[in-house]
Design a protein around this nucleic acid. Structure first.
Lengths: 207, 207
DNA sequence: TTGATTTGGAAACGTTCGTTCCCTAATTAA
DNA sequence: TTAATTAGGGAACGAACGTTTCCAAATCAA
């Protein structure tokens, strides 16, 4: 959003009063509100309080409530993807990578993180009919996850840790459902042990 | 709600003007609004229009918006459970019963029904923090599903169609996540073929 | 220094929300 | 018939919502 200009004078400070707040911290706060309360139940008052900004400032930085959400959503995806890829990179075989991905979601699906919930899953629920654009962002997020999982499965099939009889696309979609379902159930307050044993059971999908 | 009295004069009509609208039809309409829009985004105006009732009448029949939701929620559960049990009853072996249960959700997870979404999944998203009572109803619904699935798995283990090596509780929770995840992904508009192949892949959970 | 530009913040705005009130209609009990 | 009771419906209400406006503060360009 900042530094979009790539011409020679790119990094020069823009004119006018400089932004005083930390954008990432503000988005983290917005994220928290949106995922705990959902898009519609999150009010501007809650957002201003959590972000530590007056409504006028927010409306200058983002154009409206939807803009706050969409920006926070992109921020959320970026952070999540980074963490997920780090976990996957730590695994050696394809099967282990798949397991790490499942574990990533399982670890987010209990306790406080579980109760906060997933912004993408919440978005799928909040933008069913109207707002095609927001819904498209949700689809993009799901599709990226699904494709990543399919790639990991194929890696496993090449290194021999996953049977060639598995249909990578069908299994990837099944995993997508499974991991997003973990996040749904996680909102209802399950224990770490339950979620981890469900994750282990889920690995049967690549058998 | 009506006919709660079981004393001798049970079935006598209550005093005052009798209810003119069809309660089940009204709840069906409320259901549609709530699952398409979510609890918070569903306005009383939308509900009155869909239910064909004035706001005054609604507030007399249910005490408030929350009351409409809770009643519609119970109605939804009753209908769903009935359909689900019918499908399960049509299957002979435990494994086939599990498959029918998975198929039940897969068939609800594409096209129009998919876009409408699941009221229980939606409820899990809409009542995260506040409203402990509503959240408890969601937990009850999930738990019932999970228990039913665990029972079906045990049936399969007794009739020999599901390996005894499967942990029924872990697998049931995994199936719960998987089927609720189907409903989440179903909101984004997948094809019947995709969902059915995901359902088939999901059956690996009882392997 | 001056002017242009942008941010920060608080107050104010119009709208819509959930809810209540009140009057009329329909039914039972006496 | 009359009184009591409950449902139906629409108008009205206060509150909260998302948004806009306006002014002071901070920075850059000249």
């Amino acid at each position: 959003m900042t530094v979009a200009n790539l011409t020679p004078e790119a990094k020069t400070r823009s004119r006018g009063r400089p932004r005083a707040f930390d954008m990432d911290a503000a988005l983290d706060a917005a994220l928290r509100v949106f995922s705990e309360r959902g898009y519609h139940a999150a009010s501007i008052s809650e957002l201003t309080e959590a972000m530590g900004l007056a409504s006028g400032s927010i409306y200058k930085a983002f154009k409206d409530k939807r803009g706050i959400f969409l920006t926070a959503f992109a921020h959320y995806r970026k952070l999540g993807r980074r963490r997920l890829e780090a976990m996957i990179a730590s695994a050696k075989t394809g099967r282990e990578k798949v397991f790490q991905m499942v574990m990533y979601y399982a670890e987010l699906s209990y306790g406080e993180a579980g109760r906060k919930g997933c912004l993408v899953v919440g978005g799928a629920n909040d933008f069913g009919l109207l707002d095609e654009e927001a819904a498209a962002h949700v689809v993009t997020a799901f599709t990226a996850d699904e494709k990543l999982m399919a790639d990991l499965i194929r890696i496993g099939q090449e290194d021999g840790t996953i049977p060639k009889t598995v249909d990578p696309d069908a299994a990837a979609l099944a995993f997508l459902c499974f991991t997003k379902g973990l996040r749904v159930i996680g909102k209802t307050g399950r224990s770490r042990e339950e979620m981890l044993s469900a994750a282990e059971a889920g690995m049967k999908l690549v058998t």
